[in-house]
Amino acid sequence: MRRSELEAELERHHTAAFGWALSCCGWDRDMAEDVLQESYLKVLDGRARFGERASFRTFLFAVIRRTAAEARRRLAIRKVLPLSRLERRAEGRSPSTDPGERVLRSESSAQLLAALDVLPQRQRQVLHLVFYEDLSIAGAADVLGISLGTARTHYERGKERLREVLGSQGG
């Protein structure tokens, strides 16, 4: 695929990719934007190659998931190092622990994100890909690099748990 075609595909999937990046980054907008840019770079400079075995959307989402995982690892290391406390003090802010706090203001969305935050990561990711991104369970399995059976299990258990949590919230 030529660069111009790659750029057109990235632009076409930009909105969906941003939603997926937010989900992968715990709804931290700044981190999601950084991850998205890094993912686009990987696609354009050839570090991530589109093999055309799956759809471009599936490929792009898989790249975003891996890039977000790398960013989370870097963040975890920085949190361990004492230098990160000094940086935060200098910036005058503390890290947010509430998912979506800096992104969304509606109560229903905040409740949904809080409920999703209770779920294990895999269940949360499968539900996001199926319900938010309108992917099939097989598509979600491709993005996450897991088998269809495993994705189906995460989907069913995730739905059940999400309903429980939302019910307990009164949502």
Partner: peptide, 17 residues
């Protein structure tokens, strides 16, 4: 669940950079 996620997506679509 689909309706809840659709509302979430609509909100996110407004803030896409």
């Amino acid at each position: 669940l689909r309706e809840k996620f659709a509302r979430l997506r609509a909100e996110v679509d407004d803030i896409v950079p």
